[in-house]
């Protein structure tokens, strides 16, 4: 039996148990998926207390809605992240969004040369990394999540599309735009 088949069977057993409300299945679900959900949420909120509450909301929602999970569409982990993503963004919409310090003149969004972008992001020295970290702090939550899912979680575009409810092509376009934005942010910081 392949590992993939075994995983699918385990997932099926787990979701069946959750549907029946079995305590063992719930415990196993929490053990496996709470860290994933928390990690994604805390990356967006950067607040432990909010992240824990939202993680609880996410897992509760997932267990309540487990009958809607379709293994053909996404893995259980991706599905849980999708719930976490939506709940977190909904939560953040109820609060003032972080201050965006970008100028939005036309220069910011003119076509930057891809080569320049690649050079800028390829040089992983300390100074560039620090500049990028500051730039990341200025991104709105949805863009920060997208960048995290793509570069940090290393998820395929299809999974990111599922989590963020956008077509894969749109995800790619948004990633491209965020890279440009980061590029101009670090240029601006360097000028200062």
């Amino acid at each position: 039996m392949s590992k993939k088949t075994e995983t699918a069977r385990d997932t099926q057993r787990l979701t069946d148990g959750l549907q029946r409300g079995e305590a063992d299945a719930q415990e196993e679900f929490l053990r496996q998926y709470a860290p994933h959900a928390f990690r994604l949420i805390v990356q967006i909120t950067a607040n432990t207390q909010d992240a824990e509450e939202l993680t609880q909301d996410t897992l509760l929602r997932a267990m309540q809605q487990i009958q809607r999970y379709d293994p053909q569409q996404a893995s259980l982990e991706t599905w849980v992240k999708h719930i976490a993503y939506r709940l977190t963004l909904n939560h953040l919409r109820k609060r003032p969004a972080p201050l965006l310090t970008l100028d939005s003149d036309n220069e910011l969004f003119t076509e930057a040369e891809e080569e320049a972008l690649q050079r800028a992001f390829a040089e992983a020295d300390d100074e560039r990394t620090e500049l990028l970290q500051q730039a990341l702090d200025d991104l709105p939550p949805d863009e920060l999540t997208l960048i995290n899912l793509f570069y940090y979680e290393d998820l395929p575009l299809a999974e990111i599309a599922f989590i963020t409810e956008a077509p894969p092509g749109t995800v790619a376009t948004r990633l491209h735009r965020i890279r440009k934005k980061l590029y101009h942010l670090i240029l601006k910081q360097q000028q200062q």
């Binding site: 690649q118 992001f121 390829a122 992983a124 990028l132 970290q133 890279r179």
Partner: peptide, 8 residues
Amino acid sequence: DAALRRAL
């Protein structure tokens, strides 16, 4: 984008 990965 190594720098971006490292920053994240």
